[in-house]
């Protein structure tokens, strides 16, 4: 295996990632030009905000809206996007989109991160076990339940959790990230935050567990029928040794890749869950932007989701190359 081959492989992956992000940005550009009305007025907040003629003219020049659409305006748009200038929100009184998104991002990262952690811990373990003991009673129960979870929209699970644990039992809060009037930063507020996290995290995690069980089980099922497992048994290894030394490591390869690739779907699923719990993250922002037809914010979110998906893919591709030398050839 020559170093040049690996370099070329990484180069190809990088180019593909950049092309995909560019396509996301170009799609954003096209969509924005398709909306009826003067783009300058739209960018400055449509008819919903009062803008003076000078401001309008200044922005028109600033964005180069007096120049031809292609290539000038598109290149300008892409440059501005690269510099983190995503335009101004309609709804939030002309605030920078990037600023709005950054403000909401931590809440989503916490929610998605915790849910991923729980889902990986439970889902992968259960799936690997089900695949190892294929055809057993636990396998049937776990597989059936995970197929059902896989087919269930996670926001609906969230609504059921609210009805059960928040409304009927009154155990956990089902709305927002903090109780009203809490001083953020104290230990009490942290505990309060964790209590608010419990239901949304469960909802997102349950949706993911279904998928991870299915994937991990399939990976393990493939591994247990491999020749090297027969060899391992012939060598006289115990079940536990076979599981740890051979099966686990080989089954984890596709699982790790799929978990990484899955990131986009996780964030997308979290959007609807956040809507259920009025969670102050990207999902909540998406819903507000959708209801107000706040296109710059929507497009900023689209760009963020696109970029995170592409980065996740990049990591998965590179990791796969590192873990499995066959891919590099």
């Amino acid at each position: 295996m020559s170093g040049g081959g690996a370099g070329r492989h990484i180069g190809r992956i990088l180019i593909r990632a950049i092309v995909t992000i560019l396509m996301v940005a170009v799609l954003n550009f096209i969509l924005f030009r398709v909306i009826p009305g003067d783009p300058a007025a739209l960018l400055l907040g449509g008819a919903r905000t009062s803008v003076t003629a000078e401001q309008m003219e200044a922005q028109r020049q600033n964005w180069g809206l007096d120049r031809p659409l292609f290539p000038d305006q598109m290149v300008d748009y892409l440059t501005a996007t690269l510099q983190g200038d995503f335009g101004y929100s309609f709804k939030f009184r002309g605030r920078h989109v990037a600023e709005l998104i950054l403000e909401r991002l931590p809440a989503t990262v916490v929610l998605v991160g915790l849910a991923q952690f729980v889902a990986i811990l439970c889902g992968v373990m259960l799936g690997l076990y089900a695949g190892w003991r294929r055809g057993g009673a636990i396998d049937h129960i776990v597989t059936g339940a995970s197929l059902a979870l896989y087919s269930t929209p996670s926001f609906w699970l969230g609504m059921l959790l609210v009805v059960t644990f928040s409304t009927a039992l009154g155990w956990l809060p089902g709305y927002g990230a903090y109780s009203p009037g809490a001083t953020i930063g104290s230990l009490d507020s942290l505990l309060d935050h964790l209590r608010h996290l419990a239901l949304p995290v469960t909802a997102v995690a349950l949706g993911l567990i279904g998928q991870y069980v299915v994937v991990a089980r399939a990976a393990m099922s493939d591994v247990v029928t491999e020749d090297y497992m027969v060899t391992a048994r012939a060598k006289g290894l115990t079940n536990g040794q076979m599981l740890v030394r051979h099966a686990f490591r080989n089954a984890m390869l596709p699982v790790v890749t799929l978990i990484t690739l899955n990131l986009g779907y996780v964030v997308a699923g979290a959007i609807t869950v956040e809507a259920v719990f009025a969670w102050p993250g990207i999902g909540g922002l998406t819903v507000e932007a959708l209801n107000a037809r706040d296109y710059p914010v929507l497009q900023g979110i689209f760009l963020l989701l696109g970029a995170s998906i592409v980065v996740a893919n990049l990591i998965a591709d590179l990791a796969y190359g590192l873990l499995d030398p066959r891919v590099r050839q």
């Binding site: 398709v34 997308a268 959007i271 929507l298 998906i309 893919n313």
Partner: peptide, 15 residues
């Protein structure tokens, strides 16, 4: 690479 839901989320309101 791009989930249908994410694409639809931004394309649908514009269309």
């Amino acid at each position: 690479v791009m989930p249908s839901f994410v694409l639809a989320l931004v394309i649908t309101p514009v269309v």
